[in-house]
Design a protein around this nucleic acid. Structure first.
Lengths: 198, 198
DNA sequence: GCCTTAATGAAACTGGAGTTCCGTTATGAC
DNA sequence: GTCATAACGGAACTCCAGTTTCATTAAGGC
């Protein structure tokens, strides 16, 4: 139990990095439902016993991958205009979701999160970090009086992403740049109207 | 191949109904990733060979279940006010997603859709039907000049649901009535601002 | 009501995901 | 450098989801 915590040095860390990279590759190629831990072990050039012992299940492996992903932060923009900032955010999300590798990876981890509570918690932490990273855009817009005081910054950021994920996972409509632009514009319009006041 | 098309009468239809009901029950209890076709067969009091022969895989079974679900339509409201209609729609979706049975079922079929292309097509058809069912609310609002001419009705309906599904699947935040109300209000504000003009 | 055969179902079979066992490697405290 | 043991890895094993086989049931055309 809790393998890799007493001697986390050299080999253990190297194996974790190799396995997480291999897991991401496998998720991109086959998706979460066809994730084979023996295949991941082969790709990482590691014994499959090691993968089963340290991560237990496919969902456990994805949960760890998500914690690793949460640590790599991507910086937000700061254009001085809420509409421009949210548009940049929407375009970033749009490009991520339509990128062959990133898009497939995100779909896979979202599936994992709906199947396993630890993966779900890791996914929620991941998005909490991303949302918190972009929230200052809205807070600054409040101070510039672009949107009403008391506007829930996190809720505005969520509102930008929501239509893109809805198309990706639910309706199957294309996640194109026009959709991103509309999502950002809608969030700005609603925020200005005071919809997101706490 | 294509079993049940030459003699679709009595027994074949009865078995389909029993298996789909059993599949829904199993999906609610265990989720898509732990859906066992032998278990479904047992619940439906049907041979597991039959389930494997007619539906092949768990995803194929879900695809058929979704086609069955798409046929059962739920009527929209018509209050004479876009804000009220969209609010009713948001509350309907909110109640559906938080209902123990319906919520679990929807999560399961969404997962299935991200794992299998036939299930994905069935899910997209299902939502296309639901969205088309509610689009007249927006079209009538256009005629009442509540929102600008050329407003994309389907896109407004999608905008209402998107934040609810985003919370359910991505951020993990609660899908509560307040969120539903905000989602409807945001869609109205954005539509009035002309964001959804084609 | 009769007959052809579509469709079902019980039982035996198979393959591979996940586990167990135990010898080997290399971490990190001294 | 030395040593105790944390962590790894190959091989054999287990178990069950999914397949195959073939006898039984009943749909639907006449």
């Amino acid at each position: 139990m809790t393998v890799g915590t007493i001697r986390p040095g050299g080999r253990t860390a190297r194996i974790r990095a190799a396995v997480l990279r291999a897991a991401a590759d496998a998720l991109v190629e086959h998706g979460f439902d066809r994730l084979d831990l023996a295949d991941v072990a082969r790709r990482a050039e590691v014994g499959k016993t090691t993968v089963y012992r340290r991560w237990g299940t496919a969902a456990g492996l994805v949960a760890d991958l998500l914690e690793d992903m949460a640590e790599q932060s991507s910086p937000r923009t700061d254009t001085g205009s809420l509409a421009e900032d949210l548009r940049a955010n929407a375009e970033l999300v749009q490009r991520t979701l339509t990128d062959p590798r990133q898009g497939a990876l995100f779909r896979a981890v979202i599936v994992a999160a709906t199947c396993d509570s630890r993966a779900a918690e890791a996914l929620h932490r991941f998005y909490a970090v991303r949302i918190a990273e972009w929230a200052p855009c809205v807070e600054q817009a409040v101070q510039r009086e672009e949107v009403p005081p008391g506007t829930d910054a996190a809720e505005v950021i969520r509102a930008v992403s929501a239509p893109l994920y809805y198309r990706l996972l639910i309706s199957g409509d294309p996640v194109d740049p026009a959709t991103a632009e509309r999502a950002a514009a809608a969030a700005v319009a609603a925020a200005r109207a005071g919809v997101y006041i706490r």
